[in-house]
């Protein structure tokens, strides 16, 4: 058989994938007149224009997600470190921050940051930055817990060795603990990136022209929800599969380097 070069597990997964797609194809194909793929078909000029419009949202989705996660990682680390301190006040700050931030739904946070924060601060906040701040704030609580666990997982012996050389707290964190902790938390961090990409769809509520918003607007214009939302699902699917694969490659490269 020609498939002898592919490992049996992969072959099984590929077959399962095909089996899963079959009913989807049947449903979509069998709807007959109910389906008007012209609306997003690259063959027609309208279809092409619509597709481009939908795909254009990717840049905003990516910009939102990547900016938010970068900020969230920095804030998360700054919140995690006090959580490991000897000082009970510092630890208290960490607990209060994490519990409170985790308790607020992202959608609610987005609304509050966009509509409420400008009133508190007295300065206007654009849709993009409101989205970034809300997403980053919300995710930072999870990042903080991830970093706290990662740092705690570093063996005591490493810290004792650093101490016995005379390294101070900052040097110990910078050269011994964090480099090891970051390698360990890369898988959960990758998860958070995927989560962020999905949660960015919520920023559509305040008008951000990312993937979901554009799909909604197109549906209002063309009245073809099934076709358009199917494309939307596909867009997120492809985007996130590509990002996941990228994160896995990064993990593997770092694991290899560490040997």
């Amino acid at each position: 058989m020609g498939g002898a070069s592919i490992c049996p597990a992969r072959r099984r997964r590929a077959r399962l994938g095909l089996v899963a797609l079959a009913p989807l194809a049947l449903v979509l194909g069998g709807c007959g007149e109910a389906l008007q793929w012209y609306v997003v078909s690259p063959a027609t000029s309208t279809g092409r224009a619509n597709l481009l419009f939908l795909l254009g949202g990717i840049w905003y989705t990516l910009a939102l997600s990547l900016t938010a996660i970068a900020i969230s990682i920095v804030v998360g680390l700054l919140v995690a470190l006090p959580g490991l301190a000897a000082n009970p006040v510092a630890r208290g700050f960490n607990r209060v921050y994490v519990e409170c931030v985790r308790a607020v739904p992202i959608l609610v946070l987005i609304l509050w940051v966009y509509y409420g924060l400008p009133i508190v601060l007295g300065v206007a906040i654009g849709v993009f930055w409101a989205g970034v701040v809300a997403l980053a704030l919300s995710d930072s609580a999870f990042e903080a817990e991830i970093f706290r666990a990662g740092i705690q997982s570093i063996e005591r012996g490493q810290i004792e060795a650093a101490d016995s050389l005379g390294l101070g707290y900052v040097d110990r964190m910078r050269f011994v603990v964090l480099p090891q902790a970051i390698r360990r938390v890369l898988p959960p961090l990758g998860n958070q990136l995927v989560y962020m990409l999905k949660m960015s769809s919520l920023v559509s509520i305040i008008g951000m022209q990312e993937l979901t918003r554009r799909a909604n607007e197109l549906v209002t214009a063309e009245y073809r929800p099934l076709e358009i939302y199917s494309v939307l699902v596909l867009e997120y699917l492809v985007l996130i599969l590509v990002v996941s694969a990228g994160v896995r490659r990064l993990e593997r490269r770092l694991a290899r380097d560490a040997d």
Binding site: Q158, A161, R183
Partner: peptide
Amino acid sequence: FQQFNLFPHL
């Protein structure tokens, strides 16, 4: 130390 405690990433 008994367990050496070398820094594995360096």
